[in-house]
Simulated assay, not measured.
Amino acid sequence: MALWTWGANSHGQLGVGTANEQVEKPTNVELHLYESKIKQIACGGGHTLLIDNEGKLYSCGWNSKLQLARDTAVHNIDRTWSLSGVTFTNIVCGWDFSCGVTDDQSIIVWGSNAYGQLGMPTTPKEYFSEVMKPKRLPVHAILISMGLRHTAIVNSKGEVWTTGCGRHGQLGLGNEILSSDRFQKVQGVGKISHLACGQNHTVAWCSEERALYVWGDNKHGQLLLCSEKYKKVFKPNKIDIGVKQEVKKLLSGWTNALLWLEDGTLLAWGRNNWGQLGTEKSVVTGTFTHIKLPDGRQVQDIALGSEHTICLATDNTLWAWGWNEHFNTGIDLGNQILQPTLVPLQIDKNSKITQIYAGGAQNFVVVEK
């Protein structure tokens, strides 16, 4: 098994042993997992978490708010010994904060809590710090997502609970509650099956109702509503987008969102200033675009960074589009890639890409023989 990476590396978040502005081409990462395999990778604003198939946690990169759950920053993907007694099944990163779901479905949070985004009380100041070492919360989560300054979870009943900054409505708790330092239940949503936090918005999908629920900032149409009429939405707005099939993934970048459907269709909406929606055409806010891979290729997997996308096709080719200022896409064609373009990943013809991850401006790709 091999791990490849590229993109922004100003904090050493790529795990290649150094911190520099960017890594321009897919580069191999030296890993020391001691015979275990990569289960999942999560990317924050400048930090990276990894868990192996035994549930052990590793981390590297930016650590200004202790978002690595360690005392010092590291530039290699190293074992996070402070949490060595915990078995993780899922990991999530926000901008400068982190979370892990344990094997008993409880959650452990760490990093910045300046806005209450960890669900920990921010007062009294002498007791609760704005920077938190790992704390286990009395909360159970099936799904979890983190944005710039807020966190949302879905529990086993399909309920959504949110915490953190809500100035743009991203908490969905109404215009009276613009911040929270503990998880509060979002009213007015169905049983949620998919969830994604953007920079200042939240999107959720209810499989039973085949409906999208949206709330938060809509300046760029990231809620699939007309931005002139709905600048900020403080309570969940239910939208029927005419999808009558299962959703494989609901993803969000900073100001754009994407649905990957069972039949392979990719529906994208929101901001397109860097080509995030995979099209050169002008996009009307409040409408979605269909993203298509060249030559009729089908989607195997897809991942969103803050303003770029990487997509694995079923023929083992990798495609990317969007913001490219730090070679986020791995393609040497300027600061924006306006449509799906082949990533020059030089791998052995007997190897297969099995996992892809993106976040912030960095990417990771797992390759197996």
Rank of each mutant, 00 (worst) to 15 (best):
N256E: 14
G44V: 00
A204I: 00
S282R: 06
K352H: 14
S179A: 11
N328S: 09
C60V: 03
G188T: 12
Y230W: 14
C93M: 04
I144E: 00
I177P: 11
I302V: 13
L312T: 06
L225I: 13
S98K: 04
D71T: 10
S84E: 09
W6Y: 12
S180F: 09
R167K: 15
G158C: 11
G169L: 09
K65D: 10
N63T: 01
V233W: 05
E30V: 10
R297I: 11
E368S: 12
F128G: 09
G12F: 02
S227M: 13
T314Q: 12
K248I: 07
L312H: 01
I239L: 15
E30L: 08
I153T: 03
L259K: 00
H201L: 03
Q298V: 03
E30A: 11
D217P: 10
N350V: 03
N20C: 15
F183L: 10
L66Q: 07
K352S: 12
K65A: 04
S282P: 15
V366R: 00
M1F: 14
W81N: 15
G147S: 09
G264L: 10
G242M: 07
N324S: 09
V16H: 02
L66K: 14
R79P: 05
G17P: 01
C43V: 13
A114N: 11
S306T: 08
H168D: 14
G61Y: 10
T89S: 05
N218G: 12
G253R: 04
M120N: 08
Q13P: 01
I192C: 07
C93R: 01
M132G: 02
H32V: 04
G360P: 00
G119F: 06
E159R: 08
Y213K: 01
L14K: 00
T287R: 13
G46Q: 04
L258Y: 03
I331V: 12
I77Q: 06
K244T: 11
I144L: 08
W6T: 05
Y58G: 05
S82M: 12
Q40S: 06
G100M: 09
I107S: 00
G45W: 01
P134S: 03
G12E: 06
H308D: 02
E325R: 07
